[in-house]
Design a protein around this nucleic acid. Sequence first.
RNA 1: UCCUCAAUAGCUCAGUUGGUUAGAGCAUCUGACUGUUAAUCAGAGGGUCGCAGGUUCAAGUCCUGCUUGGGGAGCCA
Length: 469
Amino acid sequence: MQVKNLIMKRIKIKELLQSKEFNKEFVIEGWVRTRRGNKNVNFIAINDGSTINNMQVVVDVPVFGEESLKNITTGACVKVKGLLVNSQGQGQTVEIHAKEILVYGTADTETFPLQKKGHTLEFLRTIAHLRPRTNTFGAILRIRHNMAFAIHKYFNDKGFCYVHTPIITGSDCEGAGQMFRVSTLDFNNLPKTEDGKIDFSQDFFGKETNLTVSGQLEGELAAMALSEIYTFGPTFRAENSNTPRHLAEFWMIEPEMAFYDLEDNMNLAQDFVQYLVKYALENCKDDLEFLNNMYDKELISRLEFVVNNDFKRLTYTEAVDILVKSGEKFEYPVSWGTDLQSEHERYLVEKHFNKPVILIDYPKEIKAFYMKQNPDGKTVRAMDVLFPKIGEIIGGSQREEDFNKLNDRIKELNIPTKDMWWYIDTRKFGAAPHSGFGLGFERLILFVTGMANIRDVIPFPRTPKNAEF
RNA sequence: UCCUCAAUAGCUCAGUUGGUUAGAGCAUCUGACUGUUAAUCAGAGGGUCGCAGGUUCAAGUCCUGCUUGGGGAGCCA
């Protein structure tokens, strides 16, 4: 078709769908979801990502000519100029009567993998470069954005300072598992020391370095000056974890607060998560309704329940007691001193309390060295926030600020301290009671979207044996 | 990493006890239809049955190994 005058600025479909300016000309740009019709009239559904809803473009076929519409197939990118009118059809209130159409990019119908029909999430993972164009991933990515924004808004409104902790770390005892090595050494010709080991003094940083598994230790340093801080950045774990809840590269939010005890920490964790879920309910309604209808009929009611109900708080010891007395047949027996299994956590959250649960005061043997020791000598001021379906969404604690107790614990556990002197230093100079926690961003998105697999809530998942795209 | 299930058309799946030329729906293509809504209707094309071995007169089907994916477990956020 001849394109004469398409110089008007485009309007986003989200905005135009709410417009009442009928019989006025507008320009929209987006990707074709479907075209259907007959010799006289065609209907093109166009989506530009501003909303899950499409704009229906009505085309008078004789005016444009059938041949000129052939390129307008599912997946093509177009610019349309036309009049906004009330829709005669049932599925939408307004539509565009096309005057001019420009095809920016075609999409070959034989090879474009996305169909008008639903696809499995497994298949979409194999075409992660195209899956943002589906309703499902459009919804997830918009929700993901809204949650990232709400996280910054929440902390900013509360006076927390966003601190950028390093991605590359030189300490290997951050305490959270296997790390990815960062090196510029030639792997085919590694320099060796006299006793045959790899000579990292010749590496880029002059020492062994890895990708961070947590920004907590550096976060604590900043909290010892700014009082309330948070980090929000990528985190890397080289664990060979093959589950719907783990990624090798994920995003984590780690607030760290001076002068907070464990109860303050729990209050913050609950308020924070409830704020985020409420923000989603208020700002992502269309997307949540889509996910509710397509994937999880209880999604929205579950989100509303979390916003409106306090999380159940109890100690590890009380939880073990409940589990022992439950009469439930667990695959793994419950006993004081061992870590709770997934099935135990699920029982507490999904059967016994039927609401989010915060477990505190775990045995010190199963928790990290930096957690504050209780007077009983057996437990530490740890807290895990457990959510239905996804399990642990938050892990945190009050930190041990006593120099001697921290040092004793480090010695007991034989933790190498040569790369951590700076952390221990904070307990020497103006030590303060403080607390913090880590929230797995993708696990939050799992909960908010109702998705079942963490690979479907991040654009390009990194998992063992998979770094495609 | 362990346990378990699976892999057949572009997608989702069926394929009987091992037995003739491997099927369906959707998608695609062609045509029909004056307002469709995952449009509808008619017809057509489309297969190295994940890969490599093995058993057998005969393997999509049985056996072994590998690869990839799902679910469960561990590690955790």
